[in-house]
Design a binder for these strands. Structure first.
Lengths: 179, 179
DNA sequence: ATAACGCGGACTAGTACACTCCGCGTTTGA
DNA sequence: TCAAACGCGGAGTGTACTAGTCCGCGTTAT
């Protein structure tokens, strides 16, 4: 099991689909089905991204989400903190205060400053956060864009457009007709 | 809650007490009571440190643990891995394979190499592990030693010696007598 | 007016962590 | 020699968090 959860993983993958989708909003359900993950679970993640100012929501029938700012201004750290809520890597139990030799009262020198063990963990956490902060959504999207075949994003556009118009009845009235 | 657990915290604090205690073994119960933590819980942690070659155990009535190698050859990363077992920071769900556009078969270009999101997380994990590997037990013990008053380690020696001899009856036969 | 949206609360199953308890074999010292 | 102090390991227990579902609400386009 991991400290960086699957919620974060799903969130990042969704945001990557939103990079370059311009002003067209995508619903969380479409993003879920496009990626083969649980729609109801994704629906729990997006409000967190919205409260953090990473995506902007539009309500109503053609509503959905789009990036609230340029993809190069959204770091992986932003996303992790938005979804997980800045949970520390390490939760210091202040063992140093409980030494048996301090029966009755802990001396001042023992609790002065940050616990030495805690300090090491904070340093490690900072190293991790710095690494996450150094990667933007745009970086990874660009890296991914170089891998895909030329017609891929065209296919995605078609798939999304097909779904929206299919639901609102402007096109494809035949398939999956009720009854 | 934290990914670096309290087991690791307790383990590190114990090992710090063992730095400089030379060839005298300390029992896990003494280490627990010296620090005010659960003896039975500590007893679950030490066998992991022993299997990892960080401490050496001696059995029997005056048995206990001592460091298996010099404190400057034991890094925080060694301890974390010994107790937690090298759990990854991130568990990739391979979302990229499940794209709805890949109905039936995922193309080779999509699964080529490491997932781009996973790659970022691996980089962040490496940054954290490097930071932990850069800190040795000796580093922190030295840093702590500069904080304590001159007679502190003497008091510790006395406390430990008192406990051992008190239990085996060589001294202090009076206090806490039964009945 | 209906249906697709986002929103949020309540709920569930599984798992991990912190912690306890017990019984075993080993070793020492009274 | 026998009890007590050790380490060792397995089997628990309670709590908390994660992943995931379900429902009803207000909003909005067709």
């Amino acid at each position: 099991m991991a400290h960086i959860t699957t919620s974060i993983e799903y969130g990042i993958h969704c945001l990557l689909w939103l990079v370059g989708s311009g002003d067209r909003a995508m619903s969380s359900r479409d993003l879920a089905e496009l990626q083969g993950v649980s729609p109801s679970f994704l629906a729990k993640i997006f409000p967190k991204l919205e409260k953090a100012g990473i995506v902007a929501a539009s309500e109503g029938v053609r509503g959905g989400y789009r990036l609230a700012r340029p993809a190069d201004a959204i770091s992986f750290l932003d996303i992790v903190d938005a979804i997980e809520g800045e949970k520390p890597l390490f939760d210091c139990q202040e063992v140093r205060e409980r030494c048996a030799l301090f029966a009755g009262g802990t001396p001042a020198w023992a609790t002065d400053g940050v616990c030495a063990v805690h300090a090491v963990m904070l340093q490690a956490e900072k190293a991790m956060r710095d690494a996450l902060a150094a990667q933007s959504l745009q970086d990874v999207a660009t890296r991914f864009g170089r891998k895909v075949p030329d017609d891929f994003f065209g296919s995605v556009e078609a798939w999304v457009g097909d779904r929206i118009s299919g639901r609102t009845g402007r096109a494809r009235p035949a398939r999956e007709s009720p009854g």
